[in-house]
């Protein structure tokens, strides 16, 4: 069975970057441009991994979406990677509190992104 990845990111170029980086082999990629849509898609699709931008316009920011995914029992096992543009200690801490599995600080290398996703995929199978 293929892997399902959801990208929640307000910048169209970044969604495109993530898609181009990860879209090979048996991978299914979905996109959302704001937190609310992202949460909705996560519940509908039950992706293996959610790549979640922290700072998004709209009512829900990345931390809130992450918290809701992690506290939703029907979404148990969904891994969340936070994409943050502020690699400060307090931001990372807030991410951990929200329950994220990993984070990437912008700008990130596509290779780094692939590694993170692979790592989380292996952990999920184990």
């Amino acid at each position: 069975m293929g892997r399902k990845i959801l990208i929640v990111e307000d910048q169209a170029d970044l969604r495109k970057l993530v898609r181009m980086t990860l879209e090979f082999g048996d991978v299914e990629i979905h996109e959302a441009a704001d937190g609310a849509t992202g949460l909705h898609l996560a519940r509908e699709l039950r992706p293996d991994i959610v790549l979640l931008d922290v700072m998004m316009p709209g009512e829900l920011d990345g931390y809130q979406v992450c918290e809701r995914i992690k506290s939703d029992e029907t979404l148990a096992g969904v891994r969340v990677v936070l994409l943050t543009a502020r690699g400060q200690q307090t931001d990372l801490e807030q991410g951990r509190k929200a329950g994220c599995d990993a984070y990437l600080v912008k700008p990130f290398s596509p290779l780094e992104l692939i590694d993170k996703v692979e790592e989380l995929g292996r952990a999920a199978k184990a």
Binding site: L17, T21, R86, V105, K106, P107, P110, L111
Partner: peptide
């Protein structure tokens, strides 16, 4: 400062990421 950094990192992410690809 943190917002400015964020605003700079976002376009930088595209430049960095796409050029690496």
């Amino acid at each position: 400062l943190s917002t400015a950094a964020h605003e700079l990192r976002t376009p930088m992410a595209s430049v960095f990421g796409f050029s690496e690809l």
